[in-house]
């Protein structure tokens, strides 16, 4: 029988949102259209229109020793071309951000190939071949309901802010003020790239989502939304893992695993 991935346990809306993120067959709602060049500017690693820098010649031109794993695994397009590896990093506020670091890690691993991701408490970095990274950053990470201009931040360094109260405009605190709220248009503008270097022109990333919409699409269990304890199925799975790891670690006998 073919294995069907279940992605994530739980019967609540939050669990369903997590499954939607991870399931590559689910297409997330497209909410904005940010031009490619603007994404490149925010990432700050290449001038818009500039050629991709390479770290090795195209794989086809290279004389590589024979390796059957290389025959099995199809390289992604950036690897074929020899593009260098770059990163983009997101910080997600605990105030109902659409994604959060663990969800991001699992989602990237389910959906994309050739991705190296690092999970920390308040931020999540993706490393990938530059051309593929830009494509993912635009088409998935920023243009869809995976991102919100107010409670998600594109921050390469100095990410502090995910666990703080929002500011008066509803934006996540950023000591470097990479993005500002335009009170006339109601849009969020990036005035610096992800590490804090000023941009020549501000980049408009659109209007923040309404709090009601964020409550609908968030993947964070919260006491003032849906608390984790309400999700009995999830609690059951978490307890099972805990039991298997702790008790099973101390005493790996048949009895310990009997009721799991």
């Amino acid at each position: 029988m073919a294995y069907e991935p279940q992605y994530y346990p739980g019967k609540t809306k939050i669990a369903q949102n997590r499954r939607n993120h991870m399931n590559p067959n689910v297409e997330l709602e497209k909410l904005r259209e940010i031009p490619d060049d603007d994404i490149v500017k925010i990432m700050g690693q290449r001038q818009p229109g500039e050629d991709y820098k390479t770290v090795h010649p195209p794989l086809e031109e290279m004389d590589l020793p024979e390796d059957y794993v290389r025959d099995l695994v199809e390289p992604i397009s950036g690897a074929k071309e020899g593009h260098r590896i770059r990163y983009i990093q997101f910080a997600d506020s605990m105030y109902n951000a659409p994604a959060q670091p663990y969800d991001r890690a699992r989602t990237y691993m389910w959906r994309f190939r050739g991705v190296d991701t690092g999970t920390l408490s308040g931020r999540q970095v993706i490393e990938m071949r530059e051309s593929n990274l830009e494509e993912i950053a635009k088409n998935f990470c920023i243009d869809t309901a995976f991102y919100d201009p107010a409670v998600c931040g594109i921050r390469g360094a100095t990410v502090h802010g995910h666990s703080l109260r929002l500011d008066e405009n509803g934006l996540m605190f950023d000591a470097l003020q990479r993005y500002v709220y335009d009170e006339k248009t109601g849009h969020v503008l990036y005035v610096k790239d992800q590490v804090g270097k000023p941009l020549d022109e501000p980049v408009d990333v659109g209007e923040p989502l309404s709090p009601e919409k964020l409550v609908e699409i968030t993947t964070i269990y919260r006491k003032d939304n849906i608390p984790m304890r309400e999700d009995t199925e999830l609690i059951k799975v978490v307890k099972r893992i805990h039991r298997a790891r702790t008790l099973g670690g101390y005493m790996p006998t048949e009895d310990t695993f009997k009721d799991l």
Binding site: G156, A157, T158, A175, L176, K192, V195, G196, K197
Partner: peptide, 10 residues
């Protein structure tokens, strides 16, 4: 609120 960026490439 720092006056200058204190960490990273900038």
């Amino acid at each position: 609120l720092p006056k200058t960026v204190y960490y990273g490439p900038a």
